[in-house]
Design a protein around this nucleic acid. Structure first.
Length: 485
RNA sequence: GGCUCGUUGGUGAAGUGGCUUAACACAUUGCCCUCUCAAGGCAACAUUCACGGGUUCGAACCCCGUACGAGUCACCA
């Protein structure tokens, strides 16, 4: 039994989008299911025109942040290099294999020019017929071919497709798929400039790099029969195919790089954790056997099963990701959480407050890191007084009651020395019982007085503790003055 | 247009002929808890699995057809 080897083969044309990342994830999981499995990174940069500066670094960085560590690749090396396609090309292997395929009867030279073919195509489309190019070059004699090549005529190498019969391939998620050979066109394998086309390069690379499992989007389903014909002509083992359904933006559109659709980078910038993103996208198009939804990467490796990948497109739901991100945040150990959010707290709160205490009130509420700034805005910028906030039916308070409560609170707090949360809590609760009022009739007005906001993370006691004595009293006093007007 | 694939609630989905009066989760709504908001707890939310036929004692699950959607048909990847 050979070890499983999978490859993630992105082209460096921009940032990493979610569908791409999910493919990488599945490839990683398939490989790591095998204790000796290898997950490899290959950069497909043959389209020089579309290359984007720095895109390769984004790929490295994304994989790293997500914990999808590759065992072989341009940056880490390995026995099957080079791992960058443009470098592989230098050795001339694609041309070599293309010629070998001709010798094996799987391909042929073609000297037709593009205009000829395009004309035929247009005639056919005008008639409403489907167009399969019937290449006259297939009938050229070996002598003539040799002659024309010697003359320096440009040529391409095209695949040979049997005119009759059917081709069947097996996919782990879609099952057996059979197509009529007559519907397959003889596509170009080697371009006139000597470069391989994508599909051909893929086959050669996957084979020479010993890839056992090919995980890719289902847009390749229709070209896979042609892959098989080539593997068969070479007499090579056909890899296990795992075609994944698309990740959709809505019911009609796939997630795309345009329109700022959820790229990994965007999501991270919006305050989502890489672990949560990975966890969420694992569940887009795949479902575990149990009801468990929160998984570490290690747990995913255990639970993952190709057989449970679905066949229909899945719409990316930011609401569920947000929920899941919140779960991750809430489940963190508080000191780790503080470390994670401290930058945000520093950014939002310049005053000298206890960041750990702030982190505690945030942790149960923020679903994404970016919500934090707004949640904490009342610390530094004490909002305008608004008397309407003091009326709350459920809390059974109104400005009048609030005024009384605040006055009583002020007097008691003025004498309080221990401003720990426990002490504050006991003091205020004692006041509640001596005043014989409801909790909300004292605490709600205090919270409002301290924040002048309708909603805040934390209640009166927590916020009072963070604000400490001086600032708390100052804000209560200010509110009393305003209420007395 | 040809070929290929797909279609369970607003979303992710479970379900592979009787255990389904269709899990679970997000979202939504209501209630509880509660010093606000969250979080947490509880409940409601598909008489029905795109539609129409058929097979069967019995179908979301098998077969056929229709509709709709997606992918693909480049010297792009």
């Amino acid at each position: 039994m050979t070890n499983i080897r999978t490859r993630f083969a992105p082209s460096p044309t921009g940032y990493m989008h979610i569908g791409n990342l999910r493919t990488a994830l599945y490839e990683y999981l398939v490989a790591k299911k095998d204790p000796n499995g290898v997950f490899m990174l290959r950069i497909e940069d043959t389209d020089q025109g579309r290359l984007v500066e720095g895109a390769t670094d984004i790929i490295y960085e994304t994989l790293k942040q997500c914990g999808l560590k590759h065992d072989e690749g341009p940056d880490v090396g390995g026995d099957y290099g080079p791992y960058v396609q443009s470098e592989r090309m230098k050795s001339g292997i694609y041309k070599e294999y293309a010629e070998k395929l001709i010798a094996l009867g799987g391909a042929h030279y073609c000297f037709c020019n593009e205009e000829q073919i395009e004309q035929q195509r247009q005639i056919a489309t005008a008639r409403g017929e489907s167009f399969i190019y019937d290449d006259p070059c297939k009938n050229l004699s070996p002598e003539e071919i040799a002659q024309r090549i010697a003359n320096g005529e440009p040529y391409v190498i095209r695949q040979n497709i049997p005119s009759e019969g059917t081709t069947t391939f097996h996919d782990e998620v879609y099952g057996d798929i059979t197509v009529e050979n007559s519907t397959l066109d003889e596509s170009i394998l080697l371009k006139s400039d000597g470069f391989p086309t994508y599909n051909f390069a893929n086959i050669i690379d996957d084979h020479t790099m010993n890839i056992t499992h090919v995980v890719r989007g289902n847009e390749y389903l229709s070209s896979t029969p042609k892959y098989n014909l080539i593997y068969e002509a070479f007499g090579w083992d056909i890899p296990t195919y795992i075609h994944c359904p698309p990740v959709m933006k809505d019911e009609h559109h796939k997630l795309s790089k345009r329109n700022g659709d959820a790229s990994f980078q965007d999501l991270v910038a919006k305050g989502y954790l890489p672990e949560a993103i990975i966890n969420y996208i694992a569940l887009l198009g795949w479902s575990p056997e149990t009801d468990q939804e929160i998984y570490t990467l290690q747990e995913l490796i255990q639970a993952f099963n190709v057989k449970r990948i679905g066949t229909s497109g899945a719409i990316f739901d930011i609401d569920k990701l947000t929920w899941m991100n919140g779960m991750y945040l809430r489940n963190m150990e508080i000191h780790d959480y503080l470390k994670l959010v401290d930058e945000h707290i520093k950014n939002a709160v310049k005053g000298n407050y206890d960041h750990l205490a702030i982190a505690k009130i945030l942790q149960q509420r923020a679903n994404t890191l970016n919500e934090i700034d707004e949640m904490l805005d009342f610390f530094d910028n004490y909002p305008e007084f608004d008397i309407n906030l003091y009326t709350n039916k459920k809390m059974k308070t109104n400005p009048e009651i609030a005024l009384n409560s605040l006055k009583a609170a002020y007097d008691i707090l003025n004498d309080l020395e221990d401003w720990s949360e426990e002490s504050l809590h006991d003091t205020l609760m004692n006041l509640v019982s001596s005043l014989q009022i409801k909790n909300g009739q004292l605490l709600y007005p205090i919270r409002v007085a301290l924040t002048n906001k309708q909603f805040t993370p934390g209640g009166a006691i927590e916020i009072g503790h963070i604000l400490q004595k001086e600032e708390t009293l100052r804000r209560i006093k200010a509110s009393i003055t305003n209420l007395e007007k």
